[in-house]
Amino acid sequence: MRHLKLLRIGPIGFRIGSHWRRPIAALDELYRDYPGPRDDIADFNVHLFAARPWRRVLRPSVHIAGDFVIPDAAPLPLAQGLLAAEMGMNLQMALGLRRYLLLHASMVERNGRAVLMTGISGAGKSTLAALLMARGWRLMGDEFALIDCATGLAHAFPRLVSLKNEAIDVVTQALPGARFGPLLQGTPKGAIRHLVPDARAIAAMEVPAEPSLILFPRFGFEPAERPVLPSEAFVRLTQSSTNYVALAERGFEALTRLVQTVPARAIDYPDAATALAMVEALA
């Protein structure tokens, strides 16, 4: 691999290799304040490569692979190389992580207490996390929350925040001074723009927090709120974890402990301002 980037997000080190300079240059720029992997030894490798040599230059198409792969992962055009790198890192986490229970959730922290937000795509996880960051919360991550099976603490994974479609304008307005990646049009998930987490989120990315609230937000409904029983939270979180089954007993114990010690609420919201008020009233 001709071009190389080493970086660490929270506790996880990555080594990303690419046939092209562009995706690595984008990572260099947007992750410039992030450290390298501990001891320069990565937890995961990501490869961005051309399936055939001529596809490096002719209609370049970026294939994604790494230590852990899924069959038939669709390639992306070179203009979306940054997205390919992000997807590659997410894929390694989803398929390969065994050190923590991985929950597909965004997470913010205030006074040492972490709020986890999980739900289907479009529920507003990333948007709410970014807007809460704008209001002074520490962003711990917009995609994955890492639960330590031994201590129950939540570890941060503050990768670039992936904003999609309408959320891009909402967050750009809320964070006029923030750094953003290029606007990527026409990706498999529509328009995407990456937001660089603020200096505080990066500086504190090794600091875990005690989970204090689990939220199941839903966007596009009249404001409503209800408590979620531990049993329901358990089932929904098994569905939002990619490694719950692989962790077996450790995963079961970490997850039962989480839902038995941390209250959970489902919140419906019609717009961001309502959601922020609801979250801050609950947390």
Binding site: G13, P37, R38, D39, D40, I41, D43, R99
Partner: peptide, 8 residues
Amino acid sequence: MPEAAAQL
């Protein structure tokens, strides 16, 4: 060995 390797 380095700590990161020991973790792996």
